[in-house]
Write a protein that binds this DNA or RNA. Sequence first.
RNA 1: GUGGUUGUAGCUCAGUUGGUUAGAGCGUUGGACUGUGGCUCCAAAGGCCGGGGGUUCGAGUCCCCUCAGCCACCCCA
Length: 423
Amino acid sequence: MPRGTSDIIFEKAAKKQYIERLAIDLFEQFGYRPIVTPTFEHTELFQRGIGESTDIVRKEMYTFEDKGGRSLTLRPEGTAPVVRAYLEHGLASKSLPAKLYYCGQMFRYERPQAGRYREFWQLGIEVLGSQDALVDVEVILLLIRFLEKIGLKDLELHLNSMGCLVCRKSFGEALRKYLKDKMELLCIDCKKRVNSNPLRVFDCKNKKCQTIMKKAPLISDFWCESCRGHFETVKSILDDVGISYILNPALVRGFDYYTKTTFEVRTPYLGAQNALGGGGRYDGLVEELGGSPTPAIGWAIGTERVIMATEELNINLPLSSNTDVFVATIDGAREEGFKVLNFLRETGVSADMDYGNRSLKGQMKLANKLRASYVIILGPDELKKGICLIRNMNTGDQSEMQTSKISRWAKGEFKSGKVDFNG
RNA sequence: GUGGUUGUAGCUCAGUUGGUUAGAGCGUUGGACUGUGGCUCCAAAGGCCGGGGGUUCGAGUCCCCUCAGCCACCCCA
C-alpha cells in the first residue's frame, strides 16, 4: 500500500458512511445541493487558484503528465474545482447564490502522521454569488451544528478576517517593513517567512519571535471600512445565534484565495493535527479563474479527523448493521433455506445465512455474532412438515411456524422501528 | 523536507548476557454437546520475527542501509 494511504474497512467504513450521511442530510436541510467534480484537474487550476507561493502548490501536489502531454494534478482541495465547474456550467445564470456541497478524496504529498494522510476524505460546502454577512454566519453555523450533531465537544471556533485584497496588500507591506528592521532577531524559519509569507511569523513558537510579534501591526489595523463593517456584522450575528468564537488575528490559512472572514474549528483531542475543518471567504477567486467578480465562501472538514475525534471522546456512533434474521439449515435443506432467505430480503428484512459449510452449532454461533434477532432453522424434518423453527435469540424461545407464513410474520415483526435512510 | 521513536501470529504484546523445533492472551475453526448461540473446558490452524546486507560456529536479539507506522517541527483536513 502506498505511503499515506489506507484501506477503510468494517467499523471505520461504517463510521465514515454514517458521518457522510449525517452531513448530507444536514446540507440538504440547509438548502445545499450536491456537486461531484473530477479527481484530477489541469495543474494550472490549482496554481492559479491556490496560489504559486503556497506550500501546497510548491511541494505537496501529485502532478503528472498524461499520455497527451497535459499536466494534470490530483486535487489537493475542493474549492478551486467547484469554482471551475461553476464557471464552465454557467451556474451564475441560475438563481444565486449557488449553494453546493461535495464529498471526496483529496491528495497531498506530505509526511504522513496520524490525522494526516496523502489521500484523505473531505466534506465541504461552497456558496457562490452572495456577499451577505448572513451567508458567512450560515456557513459557520452549519459547520458547528454538524460537528455538534456528531457529538463532538469542546470545539474551538477560531475566527479572523483577512480583509479584502486592498487591505491585505497594505497590511502585508506594513508587516514586511516592520519585520525587515528586526531581521537579526528572528529565527531561521521566520527570516525566510518575511518574504514568502510574513503572516506566518505570528504562528512561530520561538519566544524571541513571539515577543517581536507582540508589537507587530495587526490586520485589524488595516481593514477598510467595508471589511470592518462586514466582520462586525458577522460577529454580532454569531453572538445572536449563540455561536461562541475565539478571535485569532494569527489565524492564517494556507490558500492565497481567502479574503475577509476566515475560520477554523479545532479540537483539543487530536495532538498536532487538531484542525477538524476550516474555510473562509474567497471573493476574488471566481474572477481569478476567469469569471466575473463574484463573492463566495466555503469550508471543508477532514472526515478521518472527525472520526478520530469521536474515538478520542468515546462517542458511540449509532451504526445499525444488525442482521434481523439468520437462516440456519441442516443436511439437504440449504437450497430451501436460500429461498427463504431471499423471501425475507424481498420483504425488506435484513437477512443472512452461512456460506461456509458450518455445522448447525457453527451457524448458531455465527448468528449470535451477527447479533441476529431471530434464527430460522430448516432441516429435513421441517421440510417434510412444511414448517420451520423460529428461535428468538434474545429470549431463547423457539417455536414452529408454517413456512408459508414467514413473510407475514417478518412484515409484522420488523416493519416498525426499521431505519429508513431515504426517509 | 528536518529530528526522534517503534516494527515479532488477524489484533495486543512477551521473548534473558546472541544458543536447538519463536511464545501468551484475544480472535478464527473444530470438538466436549452426532439438529441449537452466549458461559466453561479441550484441540487445531495461523509467523520469510517489515525488507536487504553485514558481523558470528550461530542473529528475533549486535551493526549498516532501506521501507512503513507513530510523535514533534512544518503544514493543514
